[in-house]
Amino acid sequence: MDKFEKLTGIAAPMPLINVDTDMIIPKQFLKTIKRSGLGVNLFDEMRYDDEGNEIADFVLNKPQYRNAELIVAGDNFGCGSSREHAPWAIKDFGIRCVISTSFADIFYNNCFKNGILPIVLPQEAVDVLMKDAEKGANARMTVDLEAQTVTTSDGESFSFELDPFKKHCLLEGLDDIGLTMEKASAIDSYEAKLGQSMPWL
């Protein structure tokens, strides 16, 4: 997995609450058997009209946000389905960090498996960051994972909370399966015990 340490980039403002995973990547793009190539269809139904032409006023179609690397969004980002195609599409587009007041549980976990940092901040902080993002391409936000801070283009800084284990894995780009495999003997003994106590499982 790609490491995440520090990111300075353009942030796209999406002041919409309950952005669901059907919006992030509609179902017709789930019929892939690969993880790559979904960026072009990120937010597809908001981004393109019925003929496939770009909708000019959608944020990622605006010239100043076409190279955005962060999204600042409304409450409950990523609600709905468990599709990991959502973070795959976000990453493939080039976005590595999403900031909101809250995230849906499965989406939040899926981000960490793909080197994307979802940051939860209070409403007041998200409001400030949203305003900063609205300034466009000249206003670059900085996220420092080690320090757990987000800094606006004006230098205003906010600290965020993060589970230490998730932080460690993201900083080091660690593969969960490899980590768990190191605990194979614990799984072996759990299964042996289970075979005795609950043989029907």
């Binding site: 599709r83 499965i106 976990n109 793909n114």
Partner: peptide, 8 residues
């Protein structure tokens, strides 16, 4: 019982 992503 709960849903998980593809990596999980």
């Amino acid at each position: 019982a709960h849903g998980i992503g593809t990596s999980e």
